[in-house]
Computed example of a mutant assay.
Amino acid sequence: MERIELHYPATEQRAQKALAGVVGSGDLEAMFIPHQEKTLTVIIKTSVDGSKIRWENIFKRFALLHALPMGQLEINDFAATPGVAKLRIEQVFEEANHAK
Rank of each mutant, 00 (worst) to 15 (best):
L6V: 03
A85G: 04
H35A: 10
T41F: 02
N57F: 12
W55F: 10
H7P: 01
I75N: 01
S25Q: 14
V48A: 12
F62Q: 04
L65H: 14
G50H: 03
S51W: 05
T46R: 02
K100R: 09
F93S: 01
G83W: 06
N57M: 15
I44T: 02
A20M: 02
V92F: 04
L65D: 14
P34S: 06
V22Y: 15
R61W: 08
L65V: 11
V92D: 02
A85Y: 01
G24Q: 14
R14D: 04
L68W: 09
A15F: 10
K86P: 00
L28T: 06
R14K: 15
V48E: 09
D77E: 08
D77K: 04
M70V: 07
L73H: 03
E37V: 11
E95W: 02
R88I: 03
T11N: 13
A20C: 05
Q91A: 15
D27H: 06
L40M: 13
E95H: 08
A67P: 07
T81I: 08
F78K: 13
A96R: 05
A63H: 10
Q16D: 10
A96N: 02
Y8I: 05
A85E: 03
I89Q: 01
L87T: 11
E37A: 12
A15S: 13
A85K: 07
L87R: 12
H7C: 07
G83T: 09
G24C: 11
I89E: 02
K38Y: 09
P82S: 04
N97W: 09
A79M: 06
M31R: 15
R61D: 11
F78Y: 08
L19A: 07
A15K: 14
Q72E: 15
H66P: 08
E29W: 00
